[in-house]
């Protein structure tokens, strides 16, 4: 009997050797076919949770189950793929795009790591999926920020990871590539994988995540985006870190077509409506939500 894919984190507490408790009593569950955001400030335990899921740290209490198995058991099936932060990688390393993606296949190869026809096919297919085929012979340092991200995503695909962990996937990535990556993540979700994205970039979360895990030394809330991503919860998770721009009585007139334009230099802004509900950029694809809101206020 094959267990359905899921991440079950129950009452996990992680302490570092110096006695510092990085995470206390964290509990959440992710089902297959979701894109989930792991949101919290720096030092809130996001990377500790990642490490616990990958089995790099051992919780002093609680358990992490992947598809019903312990992390150690599931490692044999190469279930978890990790896409590192851009800063974690040594880009001067003499390896090509092809070499890096092939590293995703190592776990599937024999003792000597000699690539089979199947390995090569998977690498080609993964490169094609992220649109990096023409760059396959480039040294990795010669790529742009977005291309670098795509290479490591291709490695996760080549590994055939069913649980894909991404660490800050949109830092240093231009807007077009960001859209392309989001598109790809959606396609992966629709194949039934679990995508878990660690980020402190709040504005991007409503754009592509359907599930949110809010962390601050523990899991504060976990659930569907609309339920968890509220002003109250975010204030709890971020404390005084967030900068608020409250348009108390804004100058928008009806003849402006009720349109506001927000400019930021890098990260996407997160916009809440009057009652603390999330605002989205487009109505397109969210007709249900618009209808629901209309009914709520009795329009």
């Amino acid at each position: 009997m094959i267990q359905p894919l899921a991440i079950e984190v129950s009452n996990v507490t992680v302490a570092y050797p110096n006695g510092h408790i990085a995470l206390r009593d964290a509990t959440f569950t992710l089902q297959q076919g979701t894109i989930s955001a792991l949101v919290g400030v720096n030092g809130s335990g996001k990377s500790t949770l990642f490490k616990a899921i990958m089995g790099f740290v051992k919780p002093i209490s609680g358990s992490v189950l992947l598809a019903g198995k312990t992390v150690e058991e599931s490692r044999k099936t190469k279930l978890v793929a990790y896409v590192p932060q851009t800063e974690e990688v040594d880009w001067t390393f003499p390896v090509s795009v092809w070499d890096v993606v092939m590293m995703g296949r190592y776990g599937h190869m024999n003792f000597l790591r000699i690539a089979s026809a199947e390995d090569k096919r998977m690498v080609n297919e993964s490169l094609a999926r992220v649109g990096m085929t023409e760059f396959k012979d480039r040294q990795i340092g010669e790529l742009s920020g977005g291309q670098k991200k795509r290479v490591f995503l291709a490695r996760a695909l080549a590994q055939n990871g069913q649980i894909i962990l991404l660490d800050e996937p949109f830092t240093g990535v231009d807007v077009t590539t960001e859209e392309a990556i989001i598109e790809l993540l959606r396609a992966l979700r629709d194949e039934g994988r679990i995508i878990l994205v660690s980020t402190h970039n709040l504005g991007s979360v409503p754009e592509f995540c359907d599930h949110v895990v809010l962390v601050n030394r523990t899991v504060l809330a976990s659930g569907p985006l609309e339920d968890v991503f509220t002003e109250d919860n975010l204030n709890r998770a971020f404390g005084g870190v967030l900068r608020h721009f409250h348009f108390e009585s804004s100058t928008i007139q009806d003849h402006d077509g009720k349109t506001v334009k927000l400019l930021t230099d890098d990260e996407r802004p997160l916009v809440f409506g009057k009652d603390g509900h999330l605002e989205y950029k487009d109505r397109f694809g969210r007709e249900e939500l618009v209808k629901k809101r209309k009914e709520e206020v009795g329009e």
Binding site: M54, G55, F56, R75, K76, K78, V80, A81, Y82, P84, E88, V89, D90, F93, V95, M103, G104, Y106, G107, F111, L112, R113, R155, Q159
Partner: peptide
């Protein structure tokens, strides 16, 4: 000659090496 690929991966990306069970 037998293990250079594993050593390369270890030098390049230790986290990934661990994640795939090396």
């Amino acid at each position: 000659t037998m293990k250079w690929r594993d050593l390369l991966l270890y030098c390049f990306d230790e986290a990934h090496a661990r994640a795939i069970g090396l």
